[in-house]
């Protein structure tokens, strides 16, 4: 796919544009990109800096840009507050819900692509589920889960994360499955492969890159999620998004620890983003554009 996508402006005949213009455009482009990068990075850098500043430097007027002394005490403070346990909870929730969603969602997506199950509007109908306001959904769910006695468990939160990740997975994977050439599937069928076999041995391996992108997005969405967790997480299970606000007391805001846990919370996603950066644009192209 990638080789087909040329960068169109490179093919423009140079004569149309004057050289001087070109240079100005180039400079302007770098200025804009520079500003965008600075704007995007600034709050992140500030958070990381906050996490290593001494408390007296954090709440300082005027603000201190570069602290003279650094401390890692806040990262230890996070440990005392059970922050790393929340990190683990978040990993478990995001990891398990992603694994579930990828398996279940691909099955459904394949069925929809291959046999047109559920008709033409079905995938879009599913997608609308994703946009339900979580607060509106979680409210009856809270009452319902209360009857089932599963509040404050991984299961409860994972189930709710499936609500927005399943439709997304079906939508994305449908895009990827459609791109898989029919011939490969047909020849497998002629060789006597069962439908399950075709799916498992032919279709899935071919769609693997798409699967990775989808999984990555699901992981991010689950990692970031707040409203469902806020209501379903209580004491035994406290993901990061719920842990963080607990650092804000009436009499003491632990900004240093807030900085530390924020920094820690970014790490897995940044790592994912950088590792899989080439899939990013590609994945979105397939999932949303097609």
């Amino acid at each position: 796919m990638g080789d087909k996508r040329h960068i169109y402006t490179n093919k423009e005949p140079k004569r149309i544009q004057k050289r001087k213009n070109l240079k100005a455009v180039k400079i302007a482009r770098y200025v804009i990109v520079g500003l965008a990068v600075a704007f995007a990075l600034f709050p992140i850098v500030w958070t990381v800096l906050t996490s290593v500043k001494f408390p007296s430097d954090i709440l300082h007027s005027p603000p201190i840009w570069l602290p003279k002394e650094l401390t890692f005490a806040h990262y230890i403070g996070v440990q005392e507050l059970n922050g790393y346990k929340s990190f683990k909870d978040s990993l478990i929730i995001a990891g398990l819900s992603t694994a579930c969603v990828v398996v279940i969602g691909s099955l459904a997506a394949y069925s929809i692509t291959r046999w047109k199950t559920g008709g033409k509007s079905f995938p879009f109908g599913l997608l609308t589920l994703r946009v339900l306001p979580p607060i509106a959904v979680v409210f009856p769910v809270f009452l319902f889960f209360k009857e089932l006695r599963i509040i404050d468990t991984y299961l409860a939160i994972i189930l709710m994360h499936l609500v927005f990740n399943l439709p997304f997975t079906v939508w994305m994977m449908r895009g990827f499955f459609r791109e898989i050439p029919q011939e490969a599937q047909e020849s497998a069928r002629i060789d006597g492969c069962s439908e399950v076999g075709v799916f498992w041995r032919v279709v899935l391996p071919l769609a693997a890159p798409g699967l990775i992108v989808t999984a990555m997005f699901c992981f991010i969405f689950s990692w970031q999620e707040y409203p469902y967790a806020l209501i379903l997480a209580r004491r035994r299970v406290i993901p990061l998004s719920v842990f963080l606000p607990s650092l804000f007391g009436q009499q003491m805001i632990m900004w240093g620890e807030v900085g530390a846990i924020s920094t820690i919370s970014m790490l897995p996603l940044f790592a994912l983003g950088i590792l899989a950066r080439k899939y990013f644009v590609r994945g979105l192209t397939m999932g949303t554009v097609k």
């Binding site: 209360k146 509040i151 404050d152 209580r234 004491r235 606000p245 607990s246 804000f248 007391g249 009436q250």
Partner: peptide, 23 residues
């Protein structure tokens, strides 16, 4: 010891009771 902010202390204790988690 489980900490929460002043307003949440009101909300969560009721919510917990309604959810009957016995937490």
């Amino acid at each position: 010891v489980v900490g929460m902010d002043y307003y949440a202390l009101h909300d969560k204790q009721i919510a917990e009771h309604l959810a009957a988690t016995g937490a």
